[in-house]
Nucleic acid binder design. Structure first.
Length: 188
DNA sequence: CAGTGGATGCTCT
DNA sequence: GAGCATCCACTGT
């Protein structure tokens, strides 16, 4: 029984289309991960987006083709993982904010230093620590190891809300999540 | 529970 | 030199 892996053209659409479609998709990094339960969309006309002020060395991957990882350091401490979307140059991306820990639980617990399952991947920084995603993954294609993205088999109930932690464009309802999931970074 | 503040490093002005 | 797409520990109800 072959598993359905996401093709690169899955991401060659607006981040606003891709974001809700990612809820329920299983993300694995070296076999560790689980179904995505929370994401946020960003685009170039978005004052909160890293791409808003044009291309720089940090955000260069966002301006490239869809289907690649954009990883940046947050608050000097954490890493955050994005999937680049849309046509090259549009600089759209989806931030992966939370997933349900399913594969490699013990590895995640060791990396995170906590035991509670709901604390392992319930936030973008936590998720990258649990999956060992770092700046070394910036610019890597999502359809090749160490990444593995498995298509969902059912259409989940999607909740929407405003994005988290922003000081600009905070009112845009571009946060998507699995309704009722206990593994969200915050309730909707 | 809610709210506050510190850690920490890199990017951009 | 300011400002973060965060997390955790700590305070006070």
């Amino acid at each position: 029984m072959p598993v359905n892996r996401l093709q690169r053209d899955f991401f060659a659409r607006s981040s606003h289309e891709v974001a809700p479609d990612l809820i329920g998709v299983t993300l694995l990094v070296d076999g560790v991960g689980g179904p995505i339960v929370e994401v946020e969309a960003y685009d170039q006309d978005d004052p909160a987006s890293h791409s808003f002020n044009g291309r720089t060395s940090r955000n260069a991957v966002m301006f490239g083709p869809a289907g690649y990882a954009y990883v940046y350091r947050s608050y000097g401490i954490h890493w955050c993982l994005n999937f680049v979307c849309a046509e090259p140059g549009r600089a759209e991306a989806v931030l992966i904010r939370a997933l349900q820990p399913a594969n490699g639980l013990d590895t995640m617990r060791q990396r995170r230093g906590v035991d509670a399952e709901r604390a392992l991947c319930s936030g973008p920084g936590k998720l990258c620590q649990a999956l060992a995603v770092t700046g070394a993954h910036d610019g890597l294609p999502l359809d090749e190891p160490p990444f593995e993205l498995l298509a969902r088999t059912q259409t989940p109930a999607i909740a929407t809300g405003t994005r988290i932690g922003l000081t600009k464009a905070a009112e845009r309802p571009w946060r998507y999540g699995l309704a009722g999931s206990p593994y969200l970074s915050r309730r909707f």
